[in-house]
Design a protein around this nucleic acid. Structure first.
Lengths: 325, 325
DNA sequence: ATAGATGCAAACCCTTTGCACATTA
DNA sequence: TAATGTGCAAAGGGTTTGCATCTAT
């Protein structure tokens, strides 16, 4: 896990000189977790300790943006705000016009749509801003529920784990059912093995989830940060339907291959898109797991087809699934 | 169709006094179709004709925003821009950082996701901003393809019609197949009638599309403005699958009801969300059509169930579909 | 020694405002 | 004539910059 100072040191531009004042500003800035306006940072610096020129603070903010330590955001207030990017993946904002607080969320679904639009217009997208203006829960109800804060990275990891766990559960259910329905002994064995692996992996994920909760006790009280449809629901759905109808071993393998491939691609695609973070790692590791299952199923499918050919029993559809990931 | 002057007159606030200068500014502003910065409007006014104070122009811009004639947009440049709303539905932006041009699009899919996020967070959303920053097609390729402009309202109508037509086609195909597969004479008659109606309506829509093209000859050369998934693909898909498997008349009616209800809700929901425009009308009229078909199917379903009950033949699932829209 | 960082104040940009004057209902 | 609209110039806020002065390498 990258430490705060590593984070800064790695990003220091070459040829630049060290400066105690700048380091101090950066340090103070990174301690905050909201979206600071330049003026607020000036005030913080003044009260914290030093008398540093307003100009230097503006210059340091720009320096941090160039270095990738900070992001400049515009909430339409007529001035810019800055948020640091240490353990803080890119995200979108809900902005309350009443209390001027802003709330963060991430939606891979929205990002996928943005990608589609950009592609359709042959537009090369570098950065996207999505802001929802309105009134937050507290300001609507009048009463002030206290604001518990958790690091965005932890929220991101929490939601990534939740999605992975839900997918794993759905996979487990799928393979258990497949095992029960498959008549062919070897096919059944494969499904049992996959189910077992899903079970084990599920345990690992759940342990990891508990660990995360131990680190951040009030994590579960936070609302969803990562919006992500169709991970659990939908991915294995087609498969379960087909199984319910009763299928042979070959068909079950095909359905499994379809599900694993979908799942793998899904997690790979989105994992790749995230910035370096615990959540990204969870997605990519999960994608790898699914990939392994996929390979196993493909091997099994091939061997089954071969056996059937040898024994003269031919499937209706001799087409083999494409092996590309 | 509302004219430009009606548009302005309707929005003039009560108690306000008329002023030639303001009218002139409004008129010049409404002639533009991009996103003007205040300063650019000042310059335009100066070259067009009059010497009007900068302050008056700022005041008039604010006046137009309050009246709903203009929208204030913030592209993160450190100054605001203004776009008029005459025949110009709300939309999102692709912003080229190289040439500073901005391109508009609308995505109901994104809007639906935004709604979901806001709901999950108990946030009452008033307005949403989605901006994709990057490099536009022209700036990437180097060469300047000339910029053809069409009114946004026309693009919106074009895409709404395309979606409606695609849905209608898919419905037509569905009912034709249902008619071929249904053994019950009355059920078949219903499907034939529905197919015929879809056919007729399809003709109307296509005529309307042609008419629109006649009005705006280069309309088809413009890229997609309204992004909207799953209208054609997906809506009737479940139905066609079920039909392929072979179903009885009662089941076919149920599938039809499901499809029509989905389609109706779909168009109603999105149509309601749009601002007053040709595109909105297309959506809502379409929703109405689907609603009528839905009612017809429900009536037919009830009568069928009654007949079956009378003749002693009982369906497996006596549950009748809920009649709420 | 020299490129880079800082402080100060002034300049900048965009926007709003106070006040006297002009215009409209 | 009473309420609105306009012009001018000044003020406002957020941010950047020129230049002399430091300070790290």
């Amino acid at each position: 896990m990258q430490s705060l100072s590593e984070f800064v040191e790695q990003r220091r531009p070459v040829g630049g000189k060290r400066s105690g004042k700048r380091d101090f500003i950066v340090q103070v800035f990174l301690r905050q977790d909201g979206h600071l306006a330049a003026d607020e940072l000036v005030h913080l610096i003044r009260t914290e300790d030093a008398r540093i020129s307003r100009a230097t603070i503006y210059r340091t903010l720009q320096w941090m943006v160039d270095a990738g330590i900070a992001r400049k955001v515009d909430f339409g207030e007529g001035r810019y705000r800055f948020e640091h990017s240490y353990r803080h993946p890119r995200h979108f904002h809900l902005i309350c016009k009443t209390c001027n607080q802003s709330f963060e969320f991430l939606s891979s679904d929205v990002e996928a749509l943005i990608e589609e639009v950009a592609e359709a217009r042959h537009f090369s997208a570098r950065q996207s801003v999505l802001q929802i203006y309105g009134t937050c829960e507290n300001c609507q109800s009048g009463r002030q529920s206290e604001r518990v804060t958790a690091p965005t990275e932890a929220l991101f990891a929490r939601d990534a784990l939740r999605i992975a766990i839900a997918t794993e559960r759905s996979g487990l259910e799928f393979y258990s059912r497949a095992a029960a329905l498959t008549k062919d002994a070897r096919g059944r064995k494969v499904f049992k093995r996959l189910a077992l692996e899903e079970q084990e992996h599920l345990g690992t994920l759940e342990a990891r989830y508990k660990e995360l909760l131990a680190e951040h006790p009030d994590l579960e009280s936070h609302p969803t940060f990562l919006f992500f449809k169709g991970a659990a629901n939908g991915l294995f759905a087609a498969g379960t339907d087909a199984l319910r109808a009763g299928v042979d071993d070959r068909h079950a393998l095909l359905v499994g291959i379809k599900c694993e491939r979908g799942s793998h691609q899904f997690f790979k695609r989105y994992g790749d898109r995230f910035e370096e973070s615990e959540g990204k790692r969870i997605f990519l590791e999960f994608a790898d797991e699914e990939r392994e299952h996929l390979d196993l199923l493909i091997r099994e499918y091939r061997s089954l087809v071969q056996r059937q050919k040898a024994s003269g029993r031919t499937g209706k559809r001799p087409a083999r699934p494409k092996a590309q990931a």
